[in-house]
Design a protein around this nucleic acid. Sequence first.
DNA 1: GGGCCTAACTTACCATGAGTAAGTTAGATG
DNA 2: CATCTAACTTACTCATGGTAAGTTAGGCCC
Lengths: 210, 210
Amino acid sequence: MSPTKPPAQPRRRMPRAEREAQILVVAEQVFAERGYQATTMEDVAERVGVTKPLIYEYFGSKEGLLSACIVSARGQLRDATERSWAAVGDDAELIDIFRAGVRAFFDFIDQHRNAFLLIQQEGVMAAQTSPLIESIREQQSAATAATLGAAPGLSSVPPEVLEGYAEVIVGACERIAVWRGRRPDVTAADATELVVATVWSGLASQLTTS
Amino acid sequence: MSPTKPPAQPRRRMPRAEREAQILVVAEQVFAERGYQATTMEDVAERVGVTKPLIYEYFGSKEGLLSACIVSARGQLRDATERSWAAVGDDAELIDIFRAGVRAFFDFIDQHRNAFLLIQQEGVMAAQTSPLIESIREQQSAATAATLGAAPGLSSVPPEVLEGYAEVIVGACERIAVWRGRRPDVTAADATELVVATVWSGLASQLTTS
DNA sequence: GGGCCTAACTTACCATGAGTAAGTTAGATG
DNA sequence: CATCTAACTTACTCATGGTAAGTTAGGCCC
């Protein structure tokens, strides 16, 4: 009858963490819709139901807000990728691990278009903020490289070469994702096959020659 | 003795085309140095030795100026690439044409770091301006695809697949170029070999299976 | 060489939106 | 129920993108 917290009318005040999360979600949407430039802090504040200075208190600046959004989006992407690797199992063939990772990427993009549009906004950031973002991006490549390196056949390949391969893969995937924007007939599966077909034999040759 | 035009003291007024070119050069520098956000129109104007409204008259807006810079930079890049293809000759082996194009890209980046940093700013552009930029980017891929398609062995490959390959190549190159920023020991030649090694066998398999 | 006409350029301004200082109040805690 | 803090607001500033309305250099024709 009398629940301790009837959330009928929304609480006006929220604990900081919760509010921050909410702001991030809204900001991600608005940035993706309008682009960074065209988005105003008051747009975001209004849609959250809060005023500007609160956002400034929590995120420091407009760039800080975008930065937080990107970190979050990248995090989601990394989680999705790792989940798919876990699902396929450690002892699977390398090509299947590889394919699963690539596929996870394209599926993620399909389901989180906002996050992806956001990630493409990275270039906006000034030289000071870039390192943070670049380090997140690096993570993606590093994770890919690590996964490749963990495979039995590739353990003898020098790590810096692995890193190079990982960068190629990540770059190819991102570009193809953009390309799919203007070629809607290309499915996630098609895109995956395309990337795998292009890059796999290069990787495979490392397997055999070592 | 009395040269017709002693350029001792710089001409105050310049024909529009010349001034535009000068502004583009300066803007490219400033954008690359400070990033789009941090660059103010007055920074650019001042360094040109001119006032804001002139730039607005010639380029319409800050975004218009960036846009013009990017178009110019992309154009330079495309020219460099095509020049390298011309140098290698039409009848060369496909792998040599391919390698030459990739190499031209990395060499260009080395010699025009500004232009490259600029190109990475593309994401800044709002939805309205993007199509123009995206079309330029598309050109790069289209040119790559066309070159691949012109090769004897690949003429039977469907054009949309070629386009996909081209996108993969372009994406890989751009990403590796960024990567080289934090790994200065990787030379242009190394980068070229990396990309070629990764992507070539995928292309080659299309050659043999057709 | 002198008047005129246009395109190159400037001065002086507005409007918007990022960022902030100084409060105000909800609501948890004792 | 008093108090105290963290959540939040009001009311500003200031930089900068953008523009309206001039001003002048200098080519050109007589």
